[in-house]
Design a protein around this nucleic acid. Sequence first.
DNA 1: TTAGGGTTAG
Length: 457
Amino acid sequence: MLTRTTTQNGKALSLLRPFSTASTTVSATPTLSEPPSSTTIANLILTTSDPQTLSKTLLSQQWSEPLVNATLKRLWNHAPKALEFFTIVDHHRYYSHSLSSFNLAIDLAARLRDYDGLWILVDRLKSRRLGPTPRTFAIIIERYVAAGKPDKAVKIFLSMHKHGCPQDLNFFNTLLDILCKSKRVKKAHNFLKVFRGKFRADVVSYSIIANGWCLIKRTDKALEVLEEMVERGLSPTLSSYNAMLKGYFRAGQTREAWRFFLEMKRRKCDIDVVTYTTVIHGFGVAGEVDKARRLFDEMVREGVLPNVATYNALIQVLCKKDSVESAIDLFKEMVGKGYVPNAMTYNLLIRGLCHVGEMDRASEYVGLMRNEGCEPNVQTYNLLIRYYCDAGEIEKALGVFENMGSGECLPNLDTYNVLISSMFVRQKSEDLVVGGRVKTPYGGGIFGLLHLDLDEV
DNA sequence: TTAGGGTTAG
């Protein structure tokens, strides 16, 4: 049916054909049609300017929850378009949106700070008896906090039950965590003090606050929180201690970190792989590579097996404070032992190679990761683009960029920032011409994307 | 989505 639609937008519609054929006639026998991919649909939505045509096309399509969600994610950098899509499909005769799609739409509306639209979606969710769920509220509250409205977020939390969503200890802890992760630790701490009785604050509540203080390098306050927790009869867990340890490193207090680590051992804590990864990374970043290596050997002796994260921590340290070659040696060692490197492992090595100007070898590692079935992610692309730009090889950077547009990996705000800023730094008019020529997955030149939501990373 | 460890570079 799609192939028969003849409109001003015939070109865009043809994108939805499962198999591209030269023929425009409709085959009498139904073809084995695969549903169109989210990429195809997203392109169609972005290139169809006539709302009626778009609506007609989308409503004649068969939808499923995964396809709707994938399309919404594909349109993440085009929130208004994504929401338009959501609204159209919401009028489908035989399809109705699921909770997870609603949650995505609510997230999009919140990112746009369209709070009226957001609460309309929540009401719709309620009238269909699908929610809102704690997950919905976590999304809403996180966005309000990110938009600089933590007080409003707290009010929403306190009114959750009016929407049929219970306020329990779990969600109390989620709220504390959201506040802490946005560095509003004092507010979170005060909130804990006021409501710890009502919600029966537990070890997790206190650990979140202690970790929050660590995030803003206030290890003194973090320690106070842990002490207070003990006074209230709650025993810190290994997680609490690991967070504290990490906090010392973050704050540059390596001596305190070491003392704390020794104390953990003395008290016979069951030091785990996270503890070791933290100290290996911490000392390495502080420039004590030998100590990091010794701790790596020690953990193996102690029977605590390193995992991929541990290797990544040490690989990063070697790249930064020793040499890429020693990092590559370690990489080979881990592969030899049967560990499966992940995208971060490769990214660390690729960055290390780029950093010493070995762009060709860096590219080889990109090829290697692909061969090993580990697809490059947005960080991989961004770092290649960044290093090509820094080397003044804008054309190559754009080549990488075009490559990613044709794949599954979406550029993010970082990607555009790097490309655009490097062009402005050079102030070469031909760059601007090239930049305008580059096709983005969204259809226009990269400068058409300057209106991207600056909150989205 | 009930906490803790591993990416950028200034």
